[in-house]
């Protein structure tokens, strides 16, 4: 069988042939679409390394069948920065050393972008910690991650206010 799906992948329209219904979004990105920035840490929704945005919401790509995603908008870590301009979350992760080995980092960053968009956490550290708990960092960079999300959240809120004014 072969299915064709249309995706908006990092802002670009893509027609993708899925020759096997077992292919997950994660393996589609990594093994077939040459987008290996999204990482596989557990392949079972238990670590968050594969977090991407699907229609603007964070999701575990490892548990999504690619065949079901016709029409979806997918943003991966490769599509977050605008050219040379880092997304505020990316910049804050560097500044606050919110990673060490960097393997969980794409997932952490996509999750943080999703969390900020959800709007529940604001810059409250405890709500950020809870909201980021679906992303395991074995190196133990949580202190920096929390600070980074806090700062990015503040910066983005300030910018929004600025834009609105």
């Amino acid at each position: 069988m072969s299915l064709f799906i249309s995706l908006t992948l990092n802002g670009e329209a893509r027609d993708v042939s899925i020759d096997d219904p077992r292919v997950t979004l994660l393996d589609l990105l990594r093994e077939r679409l040459a987008l290996p920035g999204t990482k596989k840490g557990c392949d079972r929704g238990q670590c968050g390394a594969c977090t991407v945005l699907v229609n603007g919401r964070r999701a575990n790509a490892c548990l999504m069948l690619a065949a079901g995603l016709d029409g979806a908008q997918i943003t991966t870590i490769e599509g977050l920065a605008r050219g040379e301009d880092l997304h505020p979350v990316q910049a804050a992760f560097i500044e606050h050393d919110g990673f060490q080995c960097g393997y969980c980092t794409p997932g952490q960053i996509m999750s943080a972008v999703g969390l900020i968009a959800e709007g529940d956490a604001g810059s409250d550290p405890e709500r950020i910690r809870e909201g980021m708990s679906g992303n395991i960092c074995r190196c133990g960079a949580y202190h920096g991650i929390t600070l980074a999300v806090q700062e990015a959240s503040r910066r983005m809120a300030a910018k929004e206010e600025g834009d609105a004014a």
Partner: peptide
């Protein structure tokens, strides 16, 4: 329950 990602799905 679960995580922010899983709750979205």
């Amino acid at each position: 329950g679960a995580s922010g990602q899983l709750r979205n799905m």
